[in-house]
Design a protein around this nucleic acid. Structure first.
Length: 313
DNA sequence: CGAATTTGACCTTG
DNA sequence: CAAGGTCAAATTCG
């Protein structure tokens, strides 16, 4: 065998592949999510599939033709076209974890009237709102939140909360970015995306099921998924902070598996419908302040009742 | 009075 | 350039 070249080249290649694979994973996450969601169009799914294939292709190309590294693999970030090279001007150094590489995922939370919102929308983390923006085509503004402990503990986790256009029930799309590194991460159970399925799922997934299966076929190891989840919880409850963070990063890599089969039935009653993940929270910082904040479109459903005394875990 | 939110300006990105 | 994302001063909350 021919060792390709110096170790620098190898490292570079390794990094590129890693990024590509990460990108592919993220797209796969999104696709997986959309497959499980009733609201996603064929077009975006195809787009995602294309992106995934692209990632594979590039990775393979790099491995087979390391010389072309520079051309093949620009840079990856979610959502956009694979162009742009930030090799030139860098306004700000990304010494810290660049946002690009942060794990991202989205969940949808539906709330039917009568649900205990305050409790339902609380993922256990403390969030601090830092912005709100009107989004084109969206009826409600999008809220931007970051971890309360960003300053004190350098926790970079953020999330965006978007209420979907007027539906009968309130539907929120919550996008998370970054993993909590704050001390809260050790205490919050579901800092990791774990899918929660409702018993009465829509019969939407008929056509999708095939695609889904073909996806799953790639990593057909259903059984250890729940094991993974258990491992996670174990770590979360037994490990203070940073370790669990690493743990979660690893797990973030395995989300695809987790989504596949891990399922709970919430004992919250029929009011709550988790479309995706287990962790969520719609913006209202329910830990230190405001319970019935203002007339923000998010809290506008203001439950006159804080439901402070819900049963513990 | 300190902490959280609001909100318009400013920065980034496609 | 426009849409999205973030900053930060002013304001509100507890």
């Amino acid at each position: 065998m021919e060792r390709k070249s110096n170790s620098g080249e190898w490292e570079k290649m390794k990094k590129e592949i890693s990024e590509l694979m990460t990108e592919g994973r993220d797209y796969a996450h999104e696709l997986k999510f959309q497959l499980g969601s009733s609201s996603s169009d064929q077009e975006s799914r195809e787009h995602l599939a294309k992106k995934i294939l692209e990632s594979y292709h590039k990775s393979l190309t790099i491995m087979n033709h390391p010389a072309e590294l520079d051309q093949v693999s620009p840079h990856i970030h979610g959502g956009g076209s694979p162009k742009s090279d930030d090799s030139d001007q860098e306004p700000h150094q990304n010494i810290k974890s660049s946002k690009k590489s942060m794990p991202r995922w989205t969940e949808k939370v539906r709330i039917t009237p009568g649900a205990e919102i305050d409790r339902t929308l609380d993922d256990g983390f403390s969030w601090r709102k830092y912005g709100q923006k009107d989004i084109l085509g969206a009826k409600f503004p999008r809220g931007y939140y970051r971890c309360t402990y960003r300053k004190s503990q350098g926790c970079e986790a953020t999330k965006q909360v978007q209420r979907s256009n007027e539906n009968h029930q309130m539907l929120f799309e919550i996008s998370y970015r970054g993993i909590h590194s704050c001390s809260q991460a050790a205490n919050v159970r579901s800092a990791i995306p774990v899918r929660v399925l409702e018993p009465n799922q829509p019969q939407e997934h008929e056509n999708l099921e095939m695609v889904k299966e073909s996806l799953d076929a790639g990593h057909h190891n259903y059984n250890h998924q729940s094991h993974l989840h258990q491992t996670l919880q174990y770590h979360l409850s037994s490990t203070p902070t940073l370790e669990s963070n690493n743990m979660m990063l690893q797990l973030a890599d395995q989300n695809i598996d987790l989504f596949g089969s891990t399922s709970f039935s919430s004992d919250l009653g029929a009011n709550v419908n988790y479309d995706y993940l287990a962790s969520h929270n719609v913006g209202s910082v329910s830990h230190s302040t405001s319970n019935s904040p203002s007339e923000s479109p998010f809290e506008s459903f203001d439950p006159n009742n804080p439901f402070k005394g819900f049963r513990g875990f």
